[in-house]
């Protein structure tokens, strides 16, 4: 029951993430949508799977915990690297974005 609820929540978050990927205007807001909510979606799905196997078969899967930790460690970093690569190749921001001060700092 708990596992089903967790996996459903994870699927919902992944769905919201993909909607955000379609509807947001520029690359930075899309990275924002894609990294945060899909990471949370994957987290909920993996925790749901972990809980399912723990209670239905009594199997404590260390690989799932390691996977959760690994996704949480690497997904924000990949989003950061993509955002920085697009910034340093002068990808345009959304029109109504205020002029940012970080232009002088350069990445």
């Amino acid at each position: 029951m708990i596992a089903a609820f967790l996996i459903l929540t994870g699927a919902l978050f992944s769905f919201l993430s993909s909607i955000g990927l379609l509807r947001l205007p520029d690359v930075y807001t899309r990275i924002h949508a894609a990294s945060k909510s899909s990471t949370l979606g994957v987290l909920f799905t993996l925790v749901g799977t972990f809980v399912f196997f723990l209670f239905s078969e009594g199997y404590f899967s260390i690989r799932l915990i390691l996977g959760i930790f690994f996704v949480f460690l690497t997904a924000p970093v990949s989003a950061h690297m993509i955002a920085r690569a697009s910034y340093s190749t002068n990808v345009k921001m959304f029109e109504s974005t205020a002029d940012n001060k970080s232009k002088a700092v350069d990445g």
């Binding site: 390691l66 460690l73 970093v77 340093s88 990445g107």
Partner: peptide, 24 residues
């Protein structure tokens, strides 16, 4: 092109490599 400061990538790589090696 000037060299960029990638301290986040470096420090996360140090942790991630240990996990990947253990998993391997």
């Amino acid at each position: 092109m000037k060299k960029q400061n990638d301290v986040i990538l470096r420090s996360v790589t140090r942790i991630a490599v240990i996990i990947i090696l253990t998993f391997a």
